[in-house]
Computed example of a mutant assay.
Amino acid sequence: MLRKALLSTLLVFAVAGSMNLVLAKDAVPLADDPVTEQRLIVISEEMRCLVCQNESLAGSRSDLANDLRREIRILIKEGKTDEQIRSFMVERYGDFVLYRPPVKPITWLLWIGPFVILLAGIIGLIVYLRRRNQSMPGTTLSDEDNRRIDALLKDAKSSSTENAHD
């Protein structure tokens, strides 16, 4: 009985261990040449992962990022320059693939938009504060009002010192 339980447990562990081998993904292949790999890293750091969007192509582990890095490796091995590779990626995926898209008419809103929104917010705040200040009536207090306020302040001060001595 103990022998059957021990064999069953051993069998369960063997199956579980083999499942890891079945489900494991292949490691991302590195280039044979370290120079090629270094160029790949430099180029892919300047590009955005199209799936993650806030992560560089070099740092992303998505399947699309792996495919794009593989494509860049192929282009490097074909002898393309860094600029030719960037141009290829922009032609294929648009300016969005670059972390720093070029300044041109189609990307002006992207570059200038945040400053326009900030300026509009500041102007709106100034207009709001001026209107609010103009709508509030200016009130001057009479001498009698000032005397009553002074009396109230003296009473409040004397009662707070009495409470402090208690």
Rank of each mutant, 00 (worst) to 15 (best):
L2I: 10
R3I: 12
L7M: 07
T9C: 11
V12F: 10
F13I: 03
V15N: 00
V15P: 00
S18D: 03
S18T: 06
N20L: 00
V22D: 02
K25C: 00
L30H: 07
D32S: 13
D32R: 09
T36H: 08
R39P: 00
L40P: 04
E45Y: 08
E45V: 07
E46D: 13
R48P: 01
N54S: 08
E55W: 02
S56A: 01
S60T: 03
R61F: 11
L64M: 12
D67N: 14
D67M: 12
L75H: 08
I76N: 02
K77P: 01
E78C: 03
G79Q: 05
E83Y: 07
R92E: 07
R100Q: 12
P101D: 03
T107N: 11
W108G: 00
L109M: 10
L110P: 00
W111G: 02
P114A: 05
L118I: 09
L118A: 15
L119M: 10
I122F: 12
G124D: 01
L125C: 06
V127T: 11
V127K: 05
Y128A: 14
R130I: 15
R130G: 04
R131L: 15
T140N: 10
D143Y: 06
E144Y: 05
R147P: 01
R147M: 09
I149F: 08
D150W: 05
A151C: 04
L153K: 13
L153V: 09
K154C: 03
D155H: 06
A156R: 10
A156N: 07
S159A: 13
S160E: 10
T161M: 13
E162P: 01
E162F: 07
D166R: 15
